[in-house]
């Protein structure tokens, strides 16, 4: 089995769980120790974006091949991505409470963009469940998924950079340099991103294997 990436993901995440709390971080006002959330909150979003990209790829493949297998993979990836957005948004809200002073602010385009994106993907799931015919469902939801992916990128990657945002790296020149990270933090942050992306792929694989079993039982 291709289990090397699962082992790698567990090692990377364990390393970041331990070293993210033990390592030195820059001393900054307001943020204080919460700067460590960069190791946990941000990689969750990277995993979500990665899964939505996987979903997009399988949707495009569905359009090219009309294969129901690809459609089911697109659905599973979107499902895992959606799943990751929930801890992403709740941890972000908690972090915002203690640094920006509020659970939710409509001043920040990234927060609202994420909320809209979650609604867009909710519509994807509702759309899927409303079409009876399998082939039709595959095609319609693949087309919608391409639209959903583009809209999500407009809302969480582009718009926050055009206007002012409370999120670092937005509102102007986007770069990791703006995360106030030093090299010590990068040594934890990048492995965390890779680790969680691999972990999300593991969850996606499990979800997909269940889907395949389900389809076989239905036949």
């Amino acid at each position: 089995m291709r289990s090397w990436y699962k082992i790698l993901s567990v090692i990377l995440i364990l390393y970041t769980l331990v070293w993210g709390l033990l390592g030195n971080v820059p001393r900054l006002d307001i943020l204080n120790e919460t700067i460590r959330n960069v190791f946990y909150h941000v990689p969750i979003w990277f995993a979500m974006l990665f899964m939505m990209t996987v979903s997009l790829i399988y949707s495009l493949k569905t359009l090219g091949s009309n294969s129901l297998h690809h459609d089911s993979k697109a659905y599973d990836a979107a499902w895992i991505g959606f799943f990751f957005s929930i801890p992403g948004i709740t941890t972000g809200s908690l972090w915002a409470k203690y640094t920006w002073g509020t659970w939710w602010t409509f001043q920040d385009p990234k927060l609202n963009g994420v909320a809209i994106s979650i609604l867009i993907y909710t519509a994807y799931f509702i759309l899927r469940s409303s079409v009876e015919d399998e082939q039709k469902k595959a095609k319609i939801s693949a087309v919608y998924n391409v639209f959903a992916f583009v809209m999500m990128n407009v809302f969480i990657m582009i718009l926050p950079r055009l206007t002012d945002s409370l999120h670092p790296g937005n509102g102007g020149n986007p770069a990791f340099a703006k995360y106030d990270m030093d090299n010590g933090m990068r040594m934890v942050f990048y492995p965390a991103v890779i680790g969680w992306i691999l972990f999300s792929f593991w969850l996606f694989e499990i979800k997909n294997r269940i889907s395949i079993l389900k389809n076989k039982l239905n036949d």
Partner: peptide, 27 residues
């Protein structure tokens, strides 16, 4: 006036317990 960090928290050394708990849950 220097930004406050969890220095005393770390001095007592018991942060390791918390980290171990987190790691155990993940495992």
């Amino acid at each position: 006036l220097e930004p406050q960090m969890a220095d005393t928290f770390r001095q007592e050394g018991k942060i390791y317990v918390v980290i171990t708990v987190i790691a155990m849950i993940f495992v």
